[in-house]
Design a binder for these strands. Structure first.
Lengths: 110, 110
DNA sequence: GCGGAAACACTACATATTGTTCCTATATCA
DNA sequence: TGATATAGGAACAATATGTAGTGTTTCCGC
């Protein structure tokens, strides 16, 4: 399986949507998107960018390019997801999410 | 002119090399690379990644994807706070925070 | 149990796009 | 002048893509 395909599957799972739903959101025909998600075909660059934007990720992540040199890949991926989700929130909601996260970070470890 | 083409030209200039030299470094035939650098053709995804790596950039930059999806200053400040808090969390905790944030973002507005 | 919708895999083919070759032109330098 | 390097145009065979048809499996309401 191709890396892009795995990432598309993974991202859909993260968002809790089916590939067909992802296709609809991106504005592509189901079958066409299914080709990308199965690794049989590759999208052109403009389509890649649109898919990444719609799914709340970046071409870098879809193509398996590490975000930063020193940063932990898993952490930065999760922070990116948060940053994207932040755009769909009101400022107040975002603030509450951050407060909650800071509380989690400050919670005593066992 | 295509964006990728402009970025390739810009990057070559930054590195102080010709397009032909860039082609050699990436390991592509001059003519083929020249097509990318002129916007007449698009590379496949694997080639794009290789070009980006060789030229010391990323697919995101070559495709013009902004570093951070957020634009608002208040939003990016809060995201930064989150990123800082993320360092004090376990990966699992961070993941749960992100899932929670995504759920908030996806919740219907009144 | 049954019908229908949804998701996904496989095949096929006309079309569009690419990789490559051949050719021309300009600039630089020995 | 001759040699070398870079850049780009035109054209064609090879390749990859978009789309359609078909079939299978799973799930859900009745």
């Amino acid at each position: 399986m191709d890396l892009l395909a795995r990432r598309l599957q993974e991202r859909a799972k993260q968002l809790g949507i089916s590939n067909a739903e992802a296709a609809r959101r991106v504005g592509l025909e189901e079958r066409r998107y299914a080709h990308y998600a199965s690794g049989r075909r590759e999208p052109d660059l403009a389509t890649l960018v649109r898919i990444a934007a719609t799914l709340g990720t970046t071409p870098n992540w879809l193509l398996g390019v590490p975000a930063g040199p020193d940063i932990d890949a898993d952490v930065s991926t999760l922070v990116e997801r948060f940053a994207y989700a932040a755009n769909s929130m009101s400022l107040r909601e975002l603030e509450l999410c951050v407060i909650q996260a800071e509380a989690v970070a400050a919670a005593p470890r066992k």
